[in-house]
Design a protein around this nucleic acid. Structure first.
Lengths: 151, 151
DNA sequence: CAGAACGATTCACATATTGAATGGTTCACG
DNA sequence: CGTGAACCATTCAATATGTGAATCGTTCTG
């Protein structure tokens, strides 16, 4: 019953999350290549759908990246017509971002790609474990205050 | 019962693995700073303990990184006295890597740090979920042919 | 109204990693 | 056996990703 402790970090949950996560991200990046998007672009689009954006700074906080990176990602998404920047009239310092039709289309395609990836990843698991994994990861995402949908 | 499908990739297992994994890796990197190690160094040391090393090329394959990166990591670990390079006498092209006393010490410290991180990460989970998570991730690691201990 | 605080942007820089070129070593086979 | 193909390690230049500091316009506070 008592779990023997790991002899190397490889046996820990944290390390496995890191390795598996990096693997999935790499695969996801491949699938997104068709759409000419990177995972961070998708994260930004997702943030807009889930939370809306009071400002780019807020988006940066949600995504846990530097504000200067949001500028870059937003530049690229704007150039592709996926988002629009609108100066907040009540505070002209703020740039409000919002999804265009095209952005919605891209985000839906990216969502489908991620769902397909999930299928493949969890293929070796039985239904109960698949459900458990989804539930537990959501729990951890919320506990870590990460961007989470409230489905 | 039927799970509503996610509206954004953020709700998928793959995406959550990516984000949580990146977060844990970043935290782990912080903890390792004391030991003057990076997660990749630890991955290399772990590979040596778990599988031994026929050659650096083999280590690169296990770690899923370019051989040239193994050279660099091994240089740094060797300079710190954590590993030794030994030319395989039966095939003098191969560099065999092995842990020194110091390497073992570092690896043990790194393992303890990772275990501590696990504690914190899984604090919000009950015992059953903690066990389930560990079990499922191990399953996935094996299915994905990632470096795994056989505890 | 002056200056502190704030948001977006730009830019130089650090870091991590890869792929191609190089050199020494071994292997297969004519 | 000798020679070219294959192989491992290494070096090096190039690329990707991201950050922090400096700058500029805007807003807030006293």
């Amino acid at each position: 019953m008592a779990k023997r402790s790991a002899r190397t970090p490889v046996g820990t949950v944290s390390f496995r999350l890191g390795v598996l996560g990096a693997g999935q991200e790499a695969r996801y990046a491949e699938r997104l290549a068709d759409l000419e998007l990177k995972p961070k672009h998708v994260a930004l689009l997702s943030a807009l759908r889930i939370k809306g954006a009071e400002s780019q700074l807020e988006v940066a906080a949600v995504m846990r990246v530097a504000p200067s990176l949001v500028v870059l990602l937003a530049d690229q998404l704007e150039a592709r017509g996926a988002i629009e920047r609108v100066r907040d009239p009540s505070d002209r310092r703020r740039q409000r971002l919002h999804l265009t039709e095209e952005g919605v289309r891209l985000l839906d395609a990216a969502t489908a790609a991620a769902a397909a990836l999930d299928e493949e990843l969890t293929a070796p698991l039985d239904a109960a474990d698949r459900a458990a994994l989804a539930r537990i990861l959501e729990r951890l995402a919320i506990a870590n205050d990460l961007l989470a949908e409230d489905i």
